[in-house]
Structures are given as C-alpha cells and as structure tokens.
Amino acid sequence: MANLQERQAQMMAFLLAGDDRIVEHISSTELVDGNQRLAIYSNGYRLRLKETLAVDHDILASYMGDEAFDELCNKFVESCPSHNKSLRHFAETLPEFLVEHYAQYPQLAELALFERRLLFSFDAADAEPLANDFLQKLAPEDWPICRFSWHPSLQIFDCQYNVVPIWQELKQEQAPPAPLEQRSRWAIWRNAERLTQFTSLMGVEIALLQSLANGDNLSHACEQLLNYLSEEEIPSFLHSRLQSYISNGMLCLV
C-alpha cells in the first residue's frame, strides 16, 4: 500500500535538495517525462522564494547588483527553507545570514535589517496615537505621573555603518555613498496616514524613549535624563521631544 507520508517526504526532499527518490513514483507521458514534470515544481519553488527576497529587499538588491544579489538569494534559499506559512516571514533571518556569510561587508546585514524593520512597521498592530494637543491639555499636576506607550509600529534601529544614507540614495535611484563606519540611531514607525517613516535620534532621546517603553512616568523619565542633561535643560528638552513624538504619531496612552 502506498504511504502518503513517505510520498510527501520524498516530494519535499526533491524540492529542497533535488533528492530523486520521488522520480520513480511519477508518471511520464510521451511529451513530458517525470523529471521534466517535477522540474516545474522545483523551479517554481526557487523562483517564488527568490522573488520574495527581491521584493522585501529591493534596496539591498540594487546595492549589491543583480549578480551578487542573485548569488546571495541562491545561497539563502538553499540553506534556509521556509518555516512559516506566510512568505512575509521567509527572509526574516537574512540579516543574520549576512552577518555569518558576508562578514567582510558588514554594511549588508545592517542594510537588510533596516529593510526588515521598515516591513515590520508597515503592518504592525494599529493603536490610537495621542492627539496633537495632548500636552497642552495635560494639567500641570498630571505631568509627573503621566505615562505613555510606544505606538506598536515604533522601533529603534541602531547601526554602526551609514546604511540609512545608503538606503536613501538608492531609493532615489542615486549612487550610494561609500560605506563608512558611523554609528547612528533611528526611530522607525508608521504615522497616522499609515506611512512608514524614520528619523535620527540622539543618545538622550533613546534614553527617554526606553524609559517610556519601560513604563516609567514622566518624573522617573526625568531622573534618567539627569545622566545626559543638567536639571535646567530637562523641562524644555522633555517638552519639545514629547511634542515632536506626539505630532509624529509615535506615542499612545498606556
């Protein structure tokens, strides 16, 4: 009796690794033999995965050039089968793969990670952002105990190379700058119009945003800022930054 599980395992082994034990179980016709028929599936399998990489990582592709990107895709497809029903997760491990296999070009992994972060923000969960006039309406006695949460799409991207300028130039179809070791940090989020945005952050802003994400109220957040700013500098810094995050749709109520 035929064994369904065995046949499916043979088919999968063929798709993933070209294992040909399935071939004898496939009918041939005069016009098209079993091997040709099976090749339609293995070609389709690789094409679909490579197309996913090309769509998710179009900027990385133009940075690397067609040939090098194609080689990367082939290597990635062969060594990282998809473990998710949705193709949108297929390339999630591409940045790690680049760290491991393209260590001589460290900017590649960071560029890929930047693209993945943009993808994450695009369809992260929805939440009502704070109204633009939230701070104006906040009573002075409520300031110290007020707490915020990040919009679910908000992420901090920390990179050692100038990958964001590289991304920006390529997006405009311009020649990218040379890779440069240059640490920078960015907020990436989706605004009220559902457009993905990013902006650079200073170290002290990271401290403020982290503190808010940890659930600190504003009085505790101010204590964190004392590591970066003098006591007199804090109120105006806090007000201007919070207002900017709120207008950008980056913050929600807890």
Binding site: L4, Q8, A9, L15, L16, Y45, P81, S82, H83
Partner: peptide, 21 residues
C-alpha cells in the same frame, strides 16, 4: 498539500488519488 515537517513549499502540491489520501 503545501508543507511537511514544518517546512513550507509555498506551492499547491497535488495529492496522489488513493483511498489513503
């Protein structure tokens, strides 16, 4: 069928037309 052992082919693979299947 599309997946086996948690690995996904992202394709619509045909069944053998047997009683077992």
């Amino acid at each position: 069928w599309s997946q086996l052992g948690g690995v996904n082919s992202h394709d619509l693979l045909p069944m053998p037309y047997t009683e077992e299947a």
